[in-house]
Structure formats: structure tokens, C-alpha cells
Amino acid sequence: MSLLPAPLEPVRPAFLTRVTPAARLAGGFAWLLVAILTLDPVVPLRLLAAGLVVLVLWSGLPLRRVPARLAPLSLAIAGLVVFSVLLSPANADLDLPTLVAVGPLRVTGPALLGGLAIGLRVLVIGLTSLLAVAPSDPTSVADSLVQQWRLPDRFAYSTLAALRIAPFMAGDWATVGAARRLRGLGGGGPRERAAEAGARLLVLLVSAVRRAERMALAMDARGFDSGLPRSHYRLLQVGWRDWLTIAAGVAVAVLALVLPR
């Protein structure tokens, strides 16, 4: 697609690709909520397992591309886990046995578990988002949110239009950098670099505003601001799959929370 990463798209029809995005998001939010509300590693571990099953069996996503997609996440998780463990209040509790000690630093069991829990939580959130969003294209997501959740349509479709031109803006960003390099700019110390980055950002934003104005004019020429209620070319049908997805999502979340640890 562009300088930006290609989106992960389903490669085959599957259960989740036939579910409306709103239903997937609803089910996903239940997981998100449970993951955020718990502090031990067991609950996110259960959700993670469930998520992997859904991913493999029902998502239709190309499994081989998923790890690459979650890679940036793993870096962030690693940093988060390390610091959560090191800076855990449990380490200050002298009643707890020391697991590892390096110089003045000391790590206790609960600190390690707490850190792991945070890491798993972030992983679960990442996977859940993937399952909620990736099985349909952004247009269907917008359609679904407008039709089912009554999101304001002018805002939703403008956002969609703006997302569509993201690759062009990435191209502009590269062009601005190239042009400035050809004018002998770039390089130098940190201060020059910061000033250069700011100037480059400004040029990009100028070009973005102009793009937006052209787009808005073209959209108005096609009646975007007609004031009439918008109708829908693609009517999303809510069926048993949607209800099943929401019910199953909530059920798994509850089970993960209440099953004995």
C-alpha cells in the first residue's frame, strides 16, 4: 500500500467476517473491560487462550501475518513488564521473599506476577482489537457504527475519507523530507534537527489543510451537507451470529473472571 503498514485483512470467509463489526466490538469490549479490571495474570491468560482459539478457527485472518502485526506490541510489552516488575510496590515489602537481587534492586514474587499480568493484559487488548476490527474493512466498520450505534454519519464518513488519504500524506511527508534535503537542509546538531522537524511538520500540515479543503469541496458538491437524513447503500443485517458473538464474548469474559483460579 504505502510507507504505512498494510492492513491485516481476512483471506477467507469465516464466522467473524460474517458478523457486524458493532457486534464484534461489543463482545471485544467485554474482554477489554475484564482485562483492565483484573490485576492477576490468570484472567488475561484465559482470555488470551480463548482469543487464540477464535483467531485460528473463526477470524479468517492470515495467521502467518499476525505475529508481524503484533511485533511492535511485543516491544512495548517487554519494556512495560520490566519496569512494572522493577518498580512494583511489592518489592518494598520486606516480608516477601526476594526472588532476584541486583545491587540495590530487589524483585519479589508478587512483583513479577504483577508485571506479567500487565504484559498479558496489553497482549490481550491487542489481540482482542485485532479480532474486533480486522475481519472487516474500515468502510464496514463505519457503516456498522453509523447504522447500529447511531454514530454521527458526517463525522464517521469524513474520518473514513481522511483515513483513505493517509498513504498520500505519508507520501507528502517523504517528499517534504526529500525536498528539504535537496535544499541542503537536514543534518546538524539536535537543535537544528528539532527545528527542521518542526518546519517539516508545518509544511505537511499546510498541505493537509489544502487537501482537506479540496476534499470537503468535492464532498459538498456531492451533497454531503444536504441536511437530509443519509440513507445506506449497504444495509447491514443483524442476525443470530451477532447475538451469538456478543453473548459468547460476554460469557467468556465472565467465565474468565469468575472461574476458580
Partner: peptide, 30 residues
């Protein structure tokens, strides 16, 4: 009205959706 550059006048990601966009705006029945 058709403009100069396709980048800014095509709104939707898919061909049929883009044609329908102007009709949806005016509330045409599906």
C-alpha cells in the same frame, strides 16, 4: 461537477460505495 484530481474527489475505498456516496447523501432509497 467533476474535479481535476481523483485523490480528493473519490471518497470511499470501494468503487460501488463511491458511486453510492452521492446518492446516500441525498437520502435515496436503497
Amino acid at each position: 461537477l467533476v474535479f481535476q484530481d481523483p485523490e480528493s474527489q473519490l471518497v470511499m475505498a470501494r468503487v460501488e460505495d463511491d458511486v453510492a456516496f452521492g446518492l446516500e447523501n441525498r437520502g435515496w432509497p436503497t
